[in-house]
């Protein structure tokens, strides 16, 4: 595992998820948190690129608390893995570096 990318901004108003997807490697992971969880919606501007990258084997996580808080429980797309803060810590350890796209 190499880099864990964290996204905390909505892809509807920021380009951070798009930038991240450009340089994300197959061994990397992506964690959506705070407003970044809107990136997990099927209607997200980056939905296609995200689907493609999940197919190549990149694991994409969303922070469950942030998903639930925004009422997105039923709306997030298939293939997104839900995690919590303990999972966040675990992911930070598993990856060599963390790149925060803010």
């Amino acid at each position: 595992m190499s880099t864990l990318h964290t996204i905390n901004k909505s892809p509807f108003s920021h380009s951070t998820l798009a930038s991240c997807l450009q340089v994300c490697g197959k061994q990397d992971g992506i964690l959506l948190l705070e407003d970044g969880v809107f990136g997990a919606l099927a209607s997200s501007p980056c939905a296609e690129e995200l689907a493609t990258i999940i197919e190549t084997g990149v694991r994409v996580y969303a922070l469950k608390g942030d998903v639930n808080a925004r009422g997105l429980q039923e709306k997030i797309r298939a293939g997104i893995l839900l995690t919590d803060y303990n999972g966040f810590v675990q992911l930070s350890i598993e990856h060599k570096c963390v790149q925060s796209w803010y």
């Binding site: 190499s2 880099t3 490697g25 060599k96 570096c97 796209w101 803010y102």
Partner: peptide, 9 residues
């Protein structure tokens, strides 16, 4: 990115 020991953003 993959070569680095540390990333600072």
């Amino acid at each position: 990115l993959a070569q680095q020991d540390q990333l600072l953003s």
